[in-house]
Amino acid sequence: MEIAANAALVVVDVQKGFEEEEFWGPRNNPGADDNIASLIDVWQATGRPVVFVRHDSPKPRSPLRTGYEGNGFKEYVEERRGKGAGAELFVTKTVNSAFYGTPDLDAWFRAEGITQFVVAGIQTNMCAETTARMGGNLGYDVLFALDATYTFDLAGPFGWRCEAAELARATAVSLHGGGFARVVTSEALRGAAA
């Protein structure tokens, strides 16, 4: 795997509100936070750009709502902001895709000459997947760090329910099989980027 010298790491919604298990329910991949932190460290150490994305939920009961403690980044992310040798961007959004945030991520990528980016963060099948899909549609070379994401069990139509691990698998198959992104491991990314 080749990682461009200016490949961006897009860290999606790694916010304190996702720690509220009573709201979200059971999650998968307990090692995700360590993998996210390690990717930020490698990206910052190699001078590559990092994009920190925050979801500002307009829903009044959401743990990610503006003005609520849960809206803030998890401590390990906040501690790393502003520490890299490369460019850094902070994007806020109210929908799933980081490409519909402020400032305009696509415009920033184009201005910086970035054609490749890695997605990590929360939730696997929601904002992380949507950002990866849109990136693929916009012509970017997207790498999806599956083990640097996590999600939660989810209820759907017809009484169906999927466990978090099933949803993560479905995301990986859809992104990879559909040609939106290459689904990879954090270990492979760290090795290729170092």
Rank of each mutant, 00 (worst) to 15 (best):
D33S: 13
E78I: 06
T124A: 01
A45C: 01
A120C: 12
G139R: 13
G177D: 03
E163S: 08
E2D: 08
G136A: 09
S97K: 13
A98M: 10
P26D: 09
S174Q: 08
L9D: 01
W160R: 15
I3F: 12
S97G: 09
F109S: 08
S57F: 08
D106T: 11
M1G: 08
R81S: 01
T66W: 10
F73M: 06
P157D: 09
D13P: 02
V51C: 05
E21D: 02
A107V: 12
F73N: 03
R133S: 03
A107M: 11
R110C: 05
E22D: 14
A85E: 05
W108H: 13
N71D: 00
D153L: 05
Q44L: 02
G177F: 09
E166K: 11
G31M: 14
R54F: 02
G70Y: 07
R182V: 04
G113K: 10
P49Y: 13
R110L: 10
P157E: 13
C127Q: 10
T66P: 01
V91E: 01
A194S: 14
L167M: 12
V184E: 08
L39G: 01
E78M: 07
G86I: 05
G70A: 06
V142G: 03
V42Y: 00
E19F: 08
Q44S: 02
